[in-house]
């Protein structure tokens, strides 16, 4: 499974990169979302991928098939943080479009070259 997951992550990364290299800001945001999915999966990969394993204990503290719970907690944090970032990015995107009227990243050069 690691191989499949690795390929999936690779594809997500590639697609994200490709979208980041587009000129549209919407695609940029989508690219970032894709790459953050991919990084979450990288973390998930670290949990060992036990099929049908759970991160729960029974009432008496015993367990059946345990997966590594720590990466799960990390991913949860990362998902939530990613959500916050994406929301902010979208707000930024919206405001940017409202003020400049453009979605084209190549247009925003004025703060760089003098």
């Amino acid at each position: 499974m690691e191989l499949i997951l690795a390929i999936l992550i690779g594809v997500l990364f590639a697609a994200g990169t490709y979208l980041l290299l587009r000129r549209s800001i919407v695609k940029l945001v989508m690219g970032i979302v894709l790459i953050s999915y991919a990084t979450n999966l990288i973390l998930f990969n670290a949990s060992g991928l036990v099929q049908n394993g759970l991160a729960f204990l029974n009432k008496d503290g015993s367990y059946d098939k345990m997966t590594d719970p720590l990466p799960q907690a990390l991913i949860l944090t990362a998902i939530v943080i990613g959500f916050g970032l994406t929301a902010f990015l979208l707000a930024l995107k919206y405001k940017f479009f409202k003020i400049t009227g453009t979605d084209d990243l190549d247009q925003l050069k004025e703060t760089d070259a003098s």
């Binding site: 940029l28 970032i32 990288i42 973390l43 998930f44 925003l108 004025e110």
Partner: peptide, 29 residues
């Protein structure tokens, strides 16, 4: 306008940096 223009770049590259970092943590773990 300048702030937003600059911010698009600032935000993108900084998020990218965090994502690389996070991926690194995943692999390291």
């Amino acid at each position: 306008k300048e702030q937003l223009t600059g911010a698009v770049k600032y935000v993108t590259m900084n998020i990218l940096s965090s994502l690389f970092f996070l991926a690194g943590i995943g692999l390291l773990y």
